[in-house]
Design a protein around this nucleic acid. Structure first.
Lengths: 341, 341
DNA sequence: CTCTGAAATGTTAGCGCTGTCATTAAAATA
DNA sequence: TATTTTAATGACAGCGCTAACATTTCAGAG
């Protein structure tokens, strides 16, 4: 009695074969119709589509992927979702994927290279059509996986190091350097720095190094700095600014590791009655939309996060087979003078 | 000569069979070892794992899923990635998925029910182990797909309507209502409202309705309102506030559709010299972290976005088979008195 | 020693599709 | 009318893995 199929009966299990039977054609014909492949007579197409619609048949892409050896999945490994930066990258990826039938399979690394390795392995198990990972720092094993596979690999955000295949992003060193140059030109001399955990956000550290380089060339250096031992946040920026201003070294400008931290700095100044720019100038990084809406427009650098995700994905789709030559795309950045520095 | 395999030679194509051959065991034994299933002698396990490690074999989950009829994919359909709200939900989902071998397959609906239908169909094609969708408003076809499948379906954010299977979120009507009560109790009488596109963000509209209900019960109503015909943003909030204050109807408090808009309002007031609370009180919705860091702490309602994602996912994992009884989980909300109202 | 049963491993038959190569029907050419 | 070409469809094998059942091995019990 116990009519046991392999799958209990979770789903009603409508397959290609059912549709084929109901419309009196072979399975392959249904398959071709659903994938718009090969010549099909209008008559047959209509008949089959009628069955498809009336039954609500949804093709099983797992089976399809296995049979055709391509998955239309894009593996995405990003470090975090705690601020708006990577969601914007994701949005760019989704934007580029719109209208295609690729789907992103997303994982979070928590800025941890070990976690990234596990994640990348797990994403690769889905035999993705391509991979998008953040940064170019990876464990050896991760690097090996990404190198050996024949699929396209986009390393996003950073273009300073040499990429495995495609790099899309900006030079964080130059951004830091230009920040320094810009502020020196505007007459600032006594520099402070407010940062967050460099072990996590390595690109913030590179920007810092670029900044130091520019200051050095101008015969200057950073007088005082406070670094928060944790992820960036507005609250942390506020607290660290308070700490920085308590120090005995008077500074006239503070460079922040990013906009979240910088906005915290602005809020602290507003609350503590510190006059922005007159007493303390503030410079951020990212160019978040909110910086634009502040009573005093935030001085910062716009990184094109949405664009990074979008272009990386477009380049991948442009040619799904790995080329021999690596490809580096600089999405650039833009100094926003603003009103806080 | 032309040794054509089906797959060009994109990947070196190392399969279970290869590993089995190299370690002198059957495929199923390797399979069992890699899935920690069934009794395996230490000797065999070591031998096989040595081969796995030295070859860098990564199992093909597409094949595995097809064979075992379960994919360990969680389909996620969210409306947008333009502010931090849904990224936080995603973060909750990832948090709950950490340590399991489930992976989220994410898509964006752009607050469009038609897009959602296409997306849900496309996600379901991967035969996910469960689905997470935002809200409970769907097209008929979407609803049919989600109802007929035997997998678990979590509708998140909103618990006002009856769910298909699981609902995790809060009552937006009650939140709006409580906002009204709270502000009336604090003595405000002349209410303004600043909103954004209700056609997109339907939950904002429900909160508005709750607010109106509370005001009505107190014999009050909304004197003036400005609604931005687009997605919420800090800039829009700022602009709409300016517009609202230009009106002839003097108001003493403005309720905003969410924190992004409210923060824009605060920024406008700071810039225009409007004294917060004395001249205009501001009340938001969401309880974003940034509201805490403002010079004057934002008065708002905390919705537990991270928790919503996390709990929805946990409930799904708790039992992957659909129960007969729908499950509604109220993650609640909390009025944050703050300093702006 | 045989017997029993658990532990360890193997055999077989698919999962639901699609690539490859037929095959058939219809149209175009000779 | 015979022959080639093209359009439309089909048969069949197999993608890489796992469920279900089968078999072997080897303790310890009798």
């Amino acid at each position: 009695m116990k009519e046991r199929t392999r799958l209990p009966d979770k789903k009603s299990k409508l397959t290609l074969a059912d549709v084929a039977r109901l419309s009196n054609v072979s399975e392959i014909t249904v398959s071709r119709i659903l994938r718009n492949k090969g010549p099909i007579s209008d008559d047959t197409r209509e008949r089959v589509m009628a069955v498809v619609n009336s039954t609500g048949y949804v093709p099983n892409r797992i089976a399809g992927s296995l049979a055709s050896a391509n998955s239309n999945i894009i593996g995405v490994a990003i470090p975090s979702l705690t601020n708006i930066v990577f969601p914007e990258v994701l949005r760019g990826i989704h934007e580029a994927l719109k209208g295609t039938d690729f789907q992103p399979l997303v994982g979070i690394t928590d800025y941890n290279l070990q976690t990234e390795e596990v994640l990348v392995r797990s994403l690769m198990a889905w035999k993705p059509a391509a991979m998008i990972v953040a940064g170019s720092e990876h464990t050896d094993a991760t690097r090996r996986m990404l190198t050996q596979t024949g699929i396209r690999v986009a390393e996003i955000m950073d273009i300073d190091p040499a990429p495995i295949d495609i790099a899309v992003g900006m030079s964080h060193f130059r951004a830091g350097y230009d920040t320094g140059r810009h502020l020196v030109e505007r007459g600032y001399r006594r520099f402070g720095y407010v940062g967050h955990d460099w072990l996590q956000d390595r690109r913030a550290k590179v920007r810092y190094e670029g900044l130091c380089q520019a200051l050095k060339e101008a015969g200057l250096s950073i007088f005082a700095q406070t670094i928060f031992e944790g992820p960036s946040s507005v609250l942390a920026g506020s607290a660290m600014t308070e700490l920085l201003l308590l120090g005995k070294d008077a500074i006239d400008v503070a460079v922040y590791s990013n906009d979240d931290m910088a906005i915290g700095g602005i809020f602290h100044c507003l609350g503590a009655g510190v006059k922005l720019r007159e007493q303390l100038a503030i410079f951020g990084f990212n160019g978040l939309e909110i910086g634009d809406a502040l009573p005093l427009k935030l001085s910062t650098i716009r990184s094109n996060r949405f664009l990074i995700g979008k272009i990386a994905t477009e380049k991948i789709l442009e040619n799904l087979d790995r080329r021999f030559e690596p490809l580096v795309i600089d999405t650039g950045y833009e100094i926003i003078s603003g009103q806080t520095a």
